[in-house]
């Protein structure tokens, strides 16, 4: 337990010392929010149920944080640790493998939380973000989404031969998904067939899941199912593909 806590704290410190990673995980979502916020404003609109554009985009930005950490941070970090023999060195101690893996998960959950808190701080400070009632259920929904995307990250980390390819492939999958899913811009402005494709993407369901809870307080069961299936698949596949060296 002591090792797990130390590893988690250490991992968190390492993440915070990595300027590029920090930019993508923490700063980028806030920047997107601020940018679109300045373009569209956050006036309450009848058409939007009394909410403003920024209010409605928050679930998308949360999805963006979750996806960035799952598909970029985790694969790059772990592939890098494997490539440099950092995992090998850990393996040669009596530590065992679970604290290493779980500390990575724990640290990244904390990074996700930090990213989301920053979004709220920026939203409240700049755009007077409106917070709907009865929305605490987004916390377990975010955790479920995070675990699901982290599992995908562990698969990528195991399959990719190096940190460089892990990063390149992670970006190649993540960024198109980001823009189609409604995480970065609203889905309703997209053509129909694009929305249909978007409906097949896991990140879209993360966004829908959080959106429904955030605005209506209801669980979208289809989206829960999709996210849960991705989680299970990710766990099963990563069990077979994860490599320590």
């Amino acid at each position: 337990m002591k090792s797990f806590l130390k590893l988690t704290y250490m991992e968190l410190k390492l993440q915070l010392r990595e300027p590029v990673a920090l930019f993508f995980t923490l700063a980028f979502p806030v920047m997107v929010m601020v940018l679109f916020g300045f373009i569209f404003g956050n006036e309450a609109e009848e058409l939007l149920g009394g909410y403003g554009q920024v209010d409605l985009s928050v679930p998308g930005y949360i999805g963006m944080v979750v996806g960035t950490i799952g598909m970029l941070s985790i694969p790059t970090t772990l592939a890098n640790y494997r490539e440099l023999g950092i995992l090998r060195r850990l393996r040669a101690t009596p530590l065992g493998s679970s604290p290493v893996l779980w500390s990575q998960v724990a640290a990244q959950v904390l990074m996700t939380a930090a990213g989301i808190i920053l979004l709220f701080i920026a939203g409240l400070a700049i755009f007077d973000l409106r917070i709907p009632n009865g929305n605490l259920a987004i916390v377990p929904a975010i955790l479920l989404s995070a675990f699901s995307f982290f599992a995908v990250g562990f698969v990528l980390a195991g399959v990719m031969p190096s940190a460089r390819t892990a990063q390149a492939v992670g970006m190649a999958i993540f960024y198109p998904m980001l823009f189609l899913s409604g995480a970065a811009m609203p889905r309703y402005i997209m053509p129909d067939f694009v929305q249909q494709i978007a409906g097949l993407l896991p990140l879209t369901h993360v966004v829908i899941l959080i959106e429904d809870l955030w605005l209506k307080g209801t669980w979208n069961l289809t989206s829960v199912a999709v996210v849960a299936v991705v989680l299970i698949l990710g766990l099963v596949i990563s069990r077979f593909t994860f490599r320590w060296e």
Partner: peptide, 25 residues
């Protein structure tokens, strides 16, 4: 053990590595 080709994270400080690894034993 000192394994061949087994590094530490670039940004981990000397004291942090020692403090961390000490918790494994």
């Amino acid at each position: 053990t000192q394994l061949q080709e087994a590094a530490l994270p670039e940004r981990m400080k000397v004291w942090e590595a020692l403090d961390l690894y000490a918790s494994f034993y």
